[in-house]
Design a protein around this nucleic acid. Structure first.
Length: 447
RNA sequence: GGUCCCAUCGUCCAGAGGUCCAGGACGCCGGGUUCUCAGCCCGGUAACAGGGGUUCGAAUCCCCUUGGGACUGCCA
């Protein structure tokens, strides 16, 4: 299908956590590499001595792993084209700079090395997504007054600049596809000039549309969560963020919107990537997350929710896996995130939060007497099952000319402390006779 | 200011000259199921930025305008 073997890379600079834009870029590179059976390479661009830290590098790697993006070559696992950290490749940059210096294509300015930008040359950037873009070399890098500005390759501190290092590295690492954000389109001509100076073959370029906030401005801190771990903390599944991010600027076609990594990998194609910047829409993310939540098997769902129950200080250890999984399966589609699922189901694990939410002061005394009678009978049913309880309740209500909700709602409040829950007899059945008796008694409705 | 990019429902995508008085999804609104809510089912709302061309015919091609965006660092 494509002429060359795919070597794609993600090259973040460790000056912050893995943010949404970076994750999106990494994701598309990963998808393209995996789709073609190629290699996905991770390179750390830590030439900014001021802002780069090992901690940030760590969190970026962790973020990628969390998203399920694995790499074949990288700073932590090595590979045949390493090292994969720019700070460890300084000799290559110097060596190549000397070469251009010797050939008179660059000059020194103090300790810095500057590339002499030629003017009057025509170039065409063949972008796989944006199509052909015509470039005049004299306009690639200019001063405010429009005059040609030469390109710094090596800074005075001995570190290479981005536009220079990226060319050396992509060449040395034999990167065949450079897939990155659209904000790099205007950098590409500078890099092309360097490729030309070295006489190297260009990689394929593919620029991805930007991701915008709801106000259509480039996604930033003021739009709220920007790091992938913030989404993890909010209770979004990695599979969901993966799915959602893949949908920004690309469609699988044939109305497929919910997919896992395998399906996305199979269907992905750079040819189907959009040019238009995409707005990050939380509503859609919520929808995607809920869909993935629904598709989770009971054990996986339990494992995803457990950390959030823990955060709420609920006595997780008192319950068996089966009980917790049953509770979550009763929760059904309630809750769009694992965090919400945990919150909305707290009463299955502990009575304390229920007491905090509800005091039964809304039940008048005469009503209380009637309810005691009903709950008394309910608690003594021979078979403790949801169906049995519901049948009993319906019969009892019919007999007493009472709407079912008049007993169902009080029961719900007492058991869950909420006005919303799964079917109340389901809840009652799962909680167990003893627990229900205890809760009802506490509110003076039984015992 | 300069260079470059983009432009279909509120949002994400379909649409690659006729099959489009524009299709799907999210959201929103209404209805059904019902002990609540979610879910599920059914229905609805809503767009080709504007103006010129080209053509028998344009959402699709060209130009202009307008509106967004990116870059313009010895940051990446």
């Amino acid at each position: 299908m494509i002429g060359k073997n795919v070597r794609a890379r993600f090259a973040p600079s460790p000056t912050g956590a893995l943010h949404i834009g970076g994750a999106h870029t990494a994701l598309f590179n990963w998808l393209w590499a995996r789709h073609n059976g190629g290699r996905f390479i991770l390179r750390i661009e830590d030439t900014d001595r001021e802002r780069s830290t090992p901690e940030y590098e760590r969190t970026i790697l962790d973020g990628l792993k969390w998203l399920g993006l694995d790499w074949d070559e990288g700073p932590d696992i090595g590979g045949g084209r390493g090292p994969y950290r720019q700070s460890e490749r300084l000799h290559s940059y110097m060596e190549r700079a000397e070469e251009l210096l010797d050939r008179g294509l660059a000059y020194k300015d103090g300790d810095a090395v500057i590339f002499k930008v030629p003017s009057g040359e025509e170039m065409v950037l063949h972008d796989l997504i944006y199509g052909d873009i015509n470039i005049q070399s004299g306009r690639v890098s200019t001063n405010q007054d429009g005059s040609v500005k030469d390109i710094v390759m090596i800074k005075s501190d001995g570190m290479p600049t981005y536009n220079y290092a990226v060319v050396i590295d992509d060449h040395d690492m034999n990167i065949t596809y450079v897939i990155r954000g659209e904000d790099h389109i205007s950098n590409t001509p500078k890099q092309m000039l360097l490729y030309r100076a070295f006489g190297w073959e260009l990689p394929e370029f593919a620029h991805l549309p930007m991701i915008l906030g709801a106000d259509k401005k480039k996604l930033s801190k003021r739009h709220g969560a920007t790091s992938v771990f913030e989404y993890s903390d909010m209770g979004y599944l990695p599979d969901s963020l993966f799915n959602f991010l893949a949908l920004l600027g690309w469609t699988a076609g044939n109305d497929t919107e919910i997919f896992d990594r395998a399906l996305a990998t199979e269907l992905f194609d750079l040819a189907n990537v959009t040019k238009k910047p995409a707005v990050f829409d939380m509503d859609k993310l919520n929808f995607v997350n809920q869909e993935h939540l629904k598709r989770l098997d009971p054990a996986s769902r339990r494992e995803a929710v457990e950390p959030f129950w823990q955060l709420l200080d609920l006595p997780l250890e008192r319950f068996g896996k089966k009980y917790l999984e049953d509770a979550l399966s009763l929760m059904g589609g309630r809750g769009r995130t694992t965090r919400e699922l945990a919150e909305f189901s707290d009463y299955f694990l502990d009575f304390e939060p229920v007491k905090l939410r509800y005091d039964a002061s809304d039940i008048p005394e005469e009503r209380r007497l009637v309810l005691r009678e009903f709950f008394g009978e309910l608690l003594n049913l021979p078979i403790w099952g949801a169906q049995e309880m519901e049948e009993f309740a319906r019969r009892w209500c019919e007999r007493n000319e009472t709407p079912l909700k008049d007993v169902a709602m009080p029961l719900r409040w007492v058991l869950t402390g909420r006005k919303v829950s799964p079917g109340v007899f389901e809840v009652t059945a799962l909680l167990g006779r003893d627990e229900c008796r205890a809760r009802l008694t506490r509110y003076g409705l039984a015992g």
